[in-house]
Structures are given as C-alpha cells and as structure tokens.
Amino acid sequence: VAMCDYCKLQKIIKETVRFSGVDKPFCSEVCKFLSA
C-alpha cells in the first residue's frame, strides 16, 4: 500500500511509471493515464 501519485489516496499500487528518473506510483490505469 502506498500513496497514488494522482488521486493522493493510500491504495494498493498497480502501476509504477518512471518520469525523469523518479518512480511515480499509481493505483490504477485510469490514474496513470489522467496524470500523463
């Protein structure tokens, strides 16, 4: 469980994407796409 980078809620992380050398955790595909 970690904080989703988009919705800022403590959730089970399903996706982690690396932006500019920094790992960004996301709880769902939706949050990942909305943050892009």
Rank of each mutant, 00 (worst) to 15 (best):
G21I: 07
Y6S: 03
E15W: 08
D5P: 06
D23A: 07
C31W: 01
F26C: 12
I13G: 11
P25E: 03
G21S: 03
F19G: 10
E29P: 09
R18S: 13
Y6A: 03
V22S: 08
E15G: 07
F26D: 05
I12T: 11
C7K: 04
D5L: 12
E29K: 11
D23T: 07
F33A: 14
T16R: 10
V30A: 12
L34P: 03
F33W: 13
A2F: 12
V22L: 05
F19S: 14
K11W: 05
C4S: 01
K14W: 08
D5I: 06
E15Q: 06
R18N: 13
D23Y: 01
C27M: 04
C27E: 06
L34T: 08
S28H: 06
K14R: 04
C7R: 06
V22E: 11
C4G: 02
K24E: 11
K11C: 13
V17A: 09
F33E: 14
T16W: 02
K32V: 02
F19L: 13
C27A: 00
I13E: 12
K8E: 05
L34V: 03
K24Q: 05
M3E: 09
E29R: 08
C31V: 01
E29Q: 07
L9H: 14
S35Y: 09
C4K: 12
T16S: 04
F26V: 06
R18C: 09
D23C: 06
S35C: 09
S35Q: 06
V17L: 10
R18P: 11
G21Q: 07
E29A: 07
V22C: 04
M3W: 00
I13L: 01
S35V: 00
F26Q: 05
D23G: 04
I12P: 14
K8T: 01
S20K: 09
L34M: 15
K24C: 02
L9P: 03
R18H: 10
I13V: 13
G21E: 03
F26G: 07
S28P: 03
C7E: 02
P25G: 11
Q10C: 03
D23K: 02
L9E: 15
L34K: 12
S35L: 00
S20C: 09
K24M: 13
T16Y: 12
S28L: 07
L34C: 12
C31D: 03
V30N: 15
I13D: 05
K11L: 05
K32M: 14
F33C: 15
P25F: 07
Q10K: 14
M3P: 05
Q10W: 04
K11T: 10
F26A: 09
S35H: 07
L9K: 13
A2R: 04
F19R: 11
K24Y: 12
S20T: 08
K32R: 06
M3Y: 13
E29H: 09
S35D: 08
K14H: 08
Q10T: 12
Y6Q: 11
K14T: 09
I12H: 01
F33R: 14
L9I: 10
R18A: 07
K24R: 09
A2P: 02
V30S: 12
A2S: 06
D23H: 10
G21P: 07
G21L: 05
V22A: 06
M3S: 09
F33Y: 01
E15C: 12
C4R: 05
V30P: 01
